[in-house]
């Protein structure tokens, strides 16, 4: 099968809308199709990766476990925008999985290299 570079871009916070969750489903399927998948978290998207989600009270399934499964699917290119973290008072230590923290410009460059950018 042809392999293409897919980047899934997340710019929305979790729970307020379903986009983050359904984006993750796309990532897992793309990985199952053995595509070259990466994820980029920008703007409020970085909140999806924040540690310690306790979603019982809002009765919506938490993301955290699924992020942990990404490695099993060989999805290891997970880019997070440094500036978006800083703006929100977060650091890489606040995130639930290991990520590559990059500058905006660096993320922009990787975006340019993609065949397909799916944004949610």
């Amino acid at each position: 099968m042809t392999t293409k570079q897919f980047m899934i871009v997340n710019r929305k916070a979790p729970y307020g809308t379903i986009y983050g969750w359904e984006a993750l489903e796309v990532v897992l399927i793309a990985a199952a199709f053995e595509q070259d998948v990466s994820m980029a978290f920008l703007d409020d998207g970085v909140y999806q990766l924040k540690k310690g989600h306790q979603t019982k009270g809002i009765e919506i399934k938490a993301f955290e476990k699924t992020f942990g499964a990404l490695e099993d699917y060989d999805v290891t290119k997970i880019y997070v925008d440094q500036e978006s973290l800083t703006e929100r008072g977060l650091t890489a230590d606040d995130l639930t999985i290991a990520v590559e923290v990059l500058s905006r410009a660096e993320i922009g460059k990787r975006m340019e290299e993609q065949d397909i950018v799916l944004s949610f």
């Binding site: 710019r11 920008l42 703007d43 500036e83 905006r104 410009a105 993320i107 922009g108 975006m111 340019e112």
Partner: peptide, 25 residues
Amino acid sequence: MLHIINKSPYDRPALDSVLKTGEGA
């Protein structure tokens, strides 16, 4: 690369985000 923006810059930061990130159109 083509950046498509469908949000008012007075409401959401999509334009700012693009200006910081990319180049092109």
